[in-house]
Design a protein around this nucleic acid. Structure first.
Lengths: 164, 164
DNA sequence: ATTAATTAAGATAAAAGAGTCTTAAATCAA
DNA sequence: TTGATTTAAGACTCTTTTATCTTAATTAAT
């Protein structure tokens, strides 16, 4: 797996918050978000805490509490979210896990992987939450996780409502 | 992690066998290979069994036994090894783990990731064990895993012998 | 045939990742 | 102030991956 599950959840949640932010002011409830995205509430909470300590979101306790983006969604890239949860490893580590691999002492696949991970980094550094959230609405893209195993078919899509 | 540890070990082992094959005939001892690559013998054995059942290598028991490539190393690509151990997921799955993500029903990052995973596939499909093993010798590339934690510095390199 | 060397295979263990549960702390509303 | 709501934090469980250990099966050499 390229991204950890926690990281993919973090991205989906960030996009969800970015979309909500463009609709109404105020904080987005984690409980509601976990239901709509079909992500375990407590697990999601932990992930959002990581995003909080990374300075990507802020949180507020109590009624009407929840989370909100800390900066303008135009200024937050997907790389920011990925790095906050999975670290820089994807963009820096040797594909074969050989420590010390680099330009001076490359591993057998260094050159190819270095190119590819660089384009990965570039693609996701240039993709802001704002852009990506906008694309979701414009193209009516897939977004939420399926509710069950079989749900891989009747794809849940935010904005159209989800099947019970 | 992009590739599982088992998969990176499988690649290193395949390259090792390819290099040995170009030197002497006969089977390559798993015990010796595990020592030189600093990979746990029993774990490596299991990985090689996967490569065996995938038709990439053959094995022989008994004295002078070991493993050998089943086909011409020019005809075995890194993709073959990766797929044998980690499956096709890296080259087919949605980055965000959304099942059903595809051209018709893309996820928010589908387009970028589809490009990148395609170039990943292409790069490693066009890289044969023969080519890669040759490059190791020509450029005196890094190859083996470090023996310990600190060994990340005094990088072990096959062909120069390893420090005790 | 016997023995030593070597891979195969299965059981077990340790570590990491993913997910759940409980309690505490903060906030809002009445 | 009290109570309800919501996030924070830590302990705990479950699963998968990684690694080890033991025993069996096969082969070569004597």
């Amino acid at each position: 797996m390229v991204l950890s599950k926690a990281c993919t959840y973090g991205i989906l949640a960030s996009l969800y918050v970015a979309r909500e932010a463009s609709r109404s002011r105020g904080y987005v409830s984690i409980g509601r978000m976990s239901e709509e995205l079909n992500i375990s509430f407590h697990f999601l909470t932990k992930i959002l805490q990581q995003l909080t300590s990374a300075g990507i979101i802020t949180s507020m306790k109590g009624p009407k509490g929840g989370v909100a983006l800390r900066r303008d969604p135009k200024e937050i890239s997907l790389v920011d979210v990925i790095v906050a949860i999975d670290g820089m490893g994807l963009f820096t580590d040797c594909l074969l896990g050989l420590p010390g691999c680099g330009e001076e002492k490359p591993c057998p696949v260094h050159d190819d992987w270095a190119d590819i991970r660089a384009s990965l980094f570039q693609a996701f550094r240039d993709k802001s939450l704002a852009d990506t959230a906008l694309r979701i609405d414009e193209l009516n893209l897939r977004f939420a996780l399926p509710t069950g195993a079989k749900a891989a078919r009747d794809n849940a899509v935010i904005g159209r409502g989800r099947p019970e």
